[in-house]
């Protein structure tokens, strides 16, 4: 299952999707302007911090193992986490903390999730390179960026006007051409983009919106974190099997058993 996605493949995937400029030109630009991230990280002054963050997440991922049922986290997810410039998604004055493994406030009463949780949620979606993903709750746009590096297309909806516009601009500025972002009500999903291989609902929800279940492909996976602001209490994983049946699993993000004397 774990797929190592090379940067070139990601770039190609992007181009295939929204190839409005001539394909060759884009490939050329890509090769010239930015060296493939897997080989050398972008020189933005945060490479070291990013590496530290990856080390922290990897160590934690080994401990969690069991949650995703796969042992360790997908290497592709880790590679992407090592590449996406998280500091671009936090307020200017918090850039130095951007790669700490902690949630950060991003204004508007919203937070950017802690990197470990982002990695875990992404991992739970088990994305194939051609996947089409819907995100409800864009927030800073960081999660969308991570998804965009792994999937073919990402659709993301934000309910707060200012935040959505900011994220849209930010993602465009960073060159994520395979992300479509809009501001509005996420309850009804994105019918024009449906069906999706994966859906992630990072906005608080009192119940699972049925339209989202409908827009999930058979074999698709949906993740909903439950918790408040800075702390995730548990993750809800919704799987639609090939027959269209729904299985809901509730997972702790940590290795923790409530009873003593067992493991």
């Amino acid at each position: 299952m774990p797929t190592v996605i090379s940067a070139a493949a990601v770039a190609a995937a992007r181009i295939r999707t929204y190839g409005s400029p001539p394909l060759t030109v884009l490939v050329f630009l890509f090769l010239v302007l930015s060296p493939p991230p897997a080989m050398a990280e972008p020189d933005d002054g945060f490479a070291e911090k990013r590496a530290e963050m990856i080390a922290v997440i990897s160590a934690l991922a080994k401990r969690i193992g069991k949650v995703s049922g796969k042992g360790v986290m997908d290497e592709g997810v880790m590679e992407v986490m090592a590449r996406v410039p998280r500091h671009e998604f936090v307020p200017e004055e918090r850039r130095d903390d951007a790669y700490d493994n902690r949630p950060l406030p991003i204004g508007f009463g919203q937070t950017i999730s802690q990197p470990y949780i982002v990695a875990l949620m992404t991992d739970l979606l088990v994305l194939a390179p051609g996947a089409s993903v819907l995100e409800v709750g864009t927030g800073s746009g960081y999660q969308a960026a991570v998804l965009a590096e792994l999937a073919r297309r990402v659709f993301t909806i934000e309910i707060i006007d200012e935040l959505g516009e900011l994220a849209k601009k930010r993602l465009a500025g960073l060159g994520y051409a395979n992300i479509r972002a809009r501001v509005g009500d996420g309850y009804y999903g994105w019918p024009e983009g449906a069906p999706f291989d994966a859906i992630i609902v990072t906005a608080a929800a009192s119940h699972i919106p049925p339209p989202l279940i409908q827009q999930l492909k058979p074999g698709g996976r949906m993740v909903i974190p439950v918790g408040e602001w800075f702390d995730v209490q548990y993750l809800t994983l919704i799987e639609k099997n090939a027959e269209g049946e729904i299985i809901i699993s509730q997972l702790l993000p940590v290795a923790f058993v409530p009873l003593t004397g067992e493991h």
Binding site: V56, L60, R63, I64, N101, Q114, Y116, I117, L120, G227, E228, F230, D231, V232, Q233, Y234, L252, P253, V254, A255, F256, T260
Partner: peptide
Amino acid sequence: WRLLPEVFGLRGMGGLGL
């Protein structure tokens, strides 16, 4: 009380909500 050290140790994994 015995919950405290364990949960605090898990905060890197989002354990504070525990």
